[in-house]
């Protein structure tokens, strides 16, 4: 493999690891679509930072985007708290409006900004190896330090607050009674999602971010009812999909992000099939014990 190709794989793996770990909590909280909402609504944040400060500096743009993402979560919660709109609808309202504002800002300032909405969607994993900076004495992709730092922050957050996250997700009212501030913790988790979305999407595209947030966790959840195996399963699933997706994409000369998402879908499909086969065999075994062996399995 060429160095550039290796970097593509490394970046994809990093993104997969961060997203899959965080996604476990999104899926457990039944907030999967929040990832979808956030990844769309970071757009105006990016553009505004660029237009206001004329900078494409990573940190400033990331900050702007993360603020827009967090604002989406907070706004949609407040809207459904103050009115009778349900949370799924208020999320849809907020992120589509944000996205529309982002697209308008881009088109209106077409001469000043070279942000391609298409690249926001698909990402540019293929080319990360060609856009390098010097970091700690090495020539590394520009996105590597961002992803590494984000990974460290997210891993620290998930480890340090593990027991509070579990309490909040399982029983928010007890979390409140025990003074564990579930609402603030929820917003902090969403800030992690926003940060991750922003850090990853330049590298892998927002669609792959959504897939990596949801699919590995959903697949692992089918296979186990315990937390540690679910987390490990999600990480292994995400990482293996990144590797398999990468090589399949190279082989078929197609988009790496698209291929990784496809492999994630295939993994989930396999898990569904596996589970239903297991259930069927279990059912036919118990049916055989009780009734006619021929008719027993016919249900």
């Amino acid at each position: 493999m060429s160095p550039a190709a290796t970097w593509s794989l490394v970046i994809a793996l990093l993104a997969a690891g961060i997203c899959s770990a965080l996604g476990v909590w999104l899926v457990l909280l039944r907030q999967s679509l929040t990832g979808d909402g956030i990844s769309h609504s970071v757009l105006p944040g990016l553009v505004l930072v660029f237009l206001l400060f004329g900078t494409r500096a990573n940190l400033a743009m990331m900050l702007g985007a993360a603020v827009a993402g967090l604002l989406t979560v907070w706004l949609s919660r407040e809207i459904s708290r103050l009115t009778r709109i349900r949370e799924d609808a208020s999320l849809g309202v907020v992120f589509t409006i944000f996205f529309a504002i982002g697209v308008i800002l881009i088109t209106r300032s077409a001469r000043q900004i070279d942000l391609d909405p298409g690249c926001v969607l698909y990402g540019l994993v293929e080319f990360v190896g060609f856009d390098t900076i010097a970091w700690a004495g090495y020539d590394v992709p520009r996105t590597l330090p961002i992803l590494v730092i984000t990974g460290v922050i997210v891993a620290a957050f998930l480890t340090l607050f593990h027991k509070e996250l579990a309490l909040m997700a399982f029983d928010p009212s007890l979390a409140h009674a025990l003074r564990r501030h579930p609402h603030r913790l929820y917003l902090a988790l969403m800030a992690m999602v926003a940060l991750t979305t922003v850090a990853c999407f330049e590298a892998v595209g927002s669609i792959l971010v959504i897939a990596l947030l949801i699919a590995p966790a959903a697949t692992a959840q089918l296979l186990t009812r315990r937390f540690a195996p679910m987390m490990i399963g999600a990480l292994v699933g995400g990482a293996s999909a990144a590797v398999a997706g990468y090589f399949l994409a190279v082989r078929w000369n197609t988009s790496i992000a698209g291929m990784i998402a496809s492999v994630l879908g295939a993994q989930y499909l396999l898990a569904v099939i596996l589970i239903s086969l297991l259930q069927r065999s279990r059912r036919s075994i118990s049916a055989r014990g009780a009734s006619d062996p021929v008719l027993g399995g016919s249900v």
Binding site: R30, A215, N253, S255, G258, A261, S262, G265
Partner: peptide
């Protein structure tokens, strides 16, 4: 039939189908 909740199912269909679409489109293009 599955234990996957509706929010995750919706997110899965959205991102996986779209990912397949992108992979297919790039493949066809090339």
């Amino acid at each position: 039939r599955s234990r996957t909740r509706e929010d995750a199912a919706l997110g899965l269909v959205l991102s996986v189908f779209f990912g397949i679409g992108i992979a297919l489109s790039r493949y066809v293009q090339n």
